[in-house]
């Protein structure tokens, strides 16, 4: 055989098919493209972020209010929320991709500002390709200045990096691990979804007829990810579907909380997927959770931290200092 053909055979052996998660890289592109404008409801990156925030808004109160030990991982190194009358707080929400082995990467990074009356949140998405200036973290050497690697030094280090990047004080940080999502659904005995038509999608593994179904975690995850055969296949449609799923999950959770066994199972699954930083003061955590519970994700204000392509490294972004003031204003109150 010819050497080039042998080489081609070796190449085919080494090749891997693109995973469904490759689509995340597409939304990074939208994050960079969307940066110049303050509000872009239809940009996929923001919508994906909205899904992460919805997840956080659903999960955090659930875990914290229902007696889960969400404070277990607390390191107590950042400012705590005082108990007593509510005051405005800034919460950092990180959606982590939970890769097997190795540190997980931050997939979506979001600052949420809750005003004292807790009515309407401001949500600022930080593109994961933004680079931050170096910060010193006691327990980590900084691997890469890109924000997506912010979890390397733990949540307290993530907080420092966001504070240094935005000059906004972060009161609380929450990490939501999407890998645990399927487990949470299973703990609730499944979740109800409605399909407008039959779906058979090989990429995501979703095969269901039209109508209402009670699906287990793996299928719920496929439903959240599927890009073909349902709606118009756009990222936007997918994210709307994810939000419907989150709402269905919340409804299911409320339904099941009368059952102590189901509830205990759910809390165990959820608390292993949600990490909270900001002190183990349960009063403070509960007051924050109550605040989050009141917020309506649909009434919140979504924006993206203004960035531009990093001239020193076009694969990354830098904060566009000239345009950040307006975006950061709600967070400095």
């Amino acid at each position: 055989m010819d050497d080039l053909n042998l080489l081609r055979d070796l190449g085919r052996d080494l090749e891997h098919e693109p995973p469904p998660t490759l689509v995340r890289q597409r939304s990074r592109l939208a994050g960079g493209a969307a940066a110049p404008r303050r509000r872009r409801w239809l940009a996929p990156a923001i919508m994906a972020t909205a899904a992460a925030v919805t997840a956080a808004l659903v999960l955090v109160p659930t875990v914290l209010l229902r007696g889960g030990d969400g404070g277990r991982h607390a390191l107590g190194t950042v400012a705590r929320t005082e108990s007593g009358p509510a005051r405005a707080v800034n919460v950092l929400v990180i959606g982590a991709d939970g890769r097997n082995g190795g540190a997980s990467n931050a997939d979506s990074i979001v600052l949420v500002h809750l005003p004292a009356d807790r009515g309407r949140a401001s949500v600022l998405s930080i593109p994961r390709d933004v680079v931050s200036s170096p910060v010193t973290c006691p327990n980590a050497k900084l691997a890469s200045p890109r924000m997506t690697y912010m979890l390397t030094g733990g949540l307290s280090c993530s907080v420092k990096r966001v504070e240094s990047l935005t000059s906004v004080r972060v009161d609380q940080a929450v990490k939501v691990d999407f890998a645990g999502f399927a487990k949470m659904v299973d703990a609730l005995g499944g979740v109800e979804i409605t399909l407008p038509k039959a779906v058979d999608d090989r990429n995501s593994g979703l095969r269901l007829g039209a109508g209402r179904h009670l699906v287990k975690g793996r299928q719920a995850l496929a439903y959240a990810r599927v890009r073909h055969g349902l709606d118009d296949g756009s990222d936007l449609a997918r994210v709307e579907r994810q939000q419907r799923l989150m709402k269905a999950l919340l409804a299911r959770a409320h339904q099941k909380f009368g059952n102590p066994v189901a509830m205990a199972r759910f809390v165990a699954a959820a608390s292993s997927s949600v990490t909270v930083l900001g002190g183990d003061d349960s009063v403070a955590l509960k007051s924050l959770a109550k605040g989050l519970e009141k917020v309506n994700p649909n009434r919140s204000d979504y924006a993206v931290l203004p960035t531009r392509i990093n001239p020193a490294d076009p694969g990354t972004l830098v904060v566009d200092e000239a345009r950040t003031a307006a975006a950061l204003r709600p967070f400095k109150r």
Binding site: Q25, L29, G32, A33
Partner: peptide
């Protein structure tokens, strides 16, 4: 996965 994303971000720039 990351390299493909980096590639398109750089190309976009």
């Amino acid at each position: 996965e990351d390299i493909v994303g980096d590639t398109f971000l750089a190309a976009f720039g």
